[in-house]
């Protein structure tokens, strides 16, 4: 093994700069927004860093409020609950819809019908 290769740590290229998500990918996502014409380097860096903080915050909030604390797990429904219950994560409700069973959905439809009938 040459020591040369250990100097180039390809696993986390941005790590020493304090970020690990690829800046180029973040720029691509930002540029996909139609109104954006250009983004300076600092804004790009900050958005990338903010996205990492966001991922951490979403994961930790969902885990702490979730049902998986005893089983040591984080599930989709924990995330969907966070999106619904936490104000700052409300913008995620469209892509984190709560899952319900068809059976429960049909039942709630039935109940609504019955309620309507009562009035």
């Amino acid at each position: 093994m040459s020591q040369n290769s250990s100097d180039k740590d390809d696993q986390s290229p941005g790590n020493k700069k304090g970020i690990s998500l690829p800046i180029s990918r973040v720029r691509l996502i930002m540029k996909s927004s139609p109104d954006v014409s250009s983004i300076n380097q600092e804004a790009l860096f900050l958005t990338t860093k903010a996205t990492e903080l966001f991922v951490q915050h979403l994961a930790v909030t969902s885990f702490n409020n979730g049902s998986g604390k005893e089983t040591n797990s984080l599930s989709y429904s924990d995330l969907a609950n966070t999106a619904e219950e936490t104000e700052t994560f409300h913008f995620l409700t469209d892509i984190l819809p709560k899952k319900i069973l068809a059976r429960d959905y049909l039942q709630s439809l039935e109940e609504m019908k019955e309620e309507d009938a009562d009035f």
Binding site: V26, I29, M30, S32, S33, V36, T47, A50, T51, F54, V55, L58, A59, Y76, L79, A80, A83, F91, L92, I95, L96
Partner: peptide, 14 residues
């Protein structure tokens, strides 16, 4: 889901 949420976060922030 978290990964998709992160992409949406980028768009929202942008």
């Amino acid at each position: 889901a978290i990964s998709q949420a992160a992409s949406v976060f980028v768009l929202y922030a942008t």
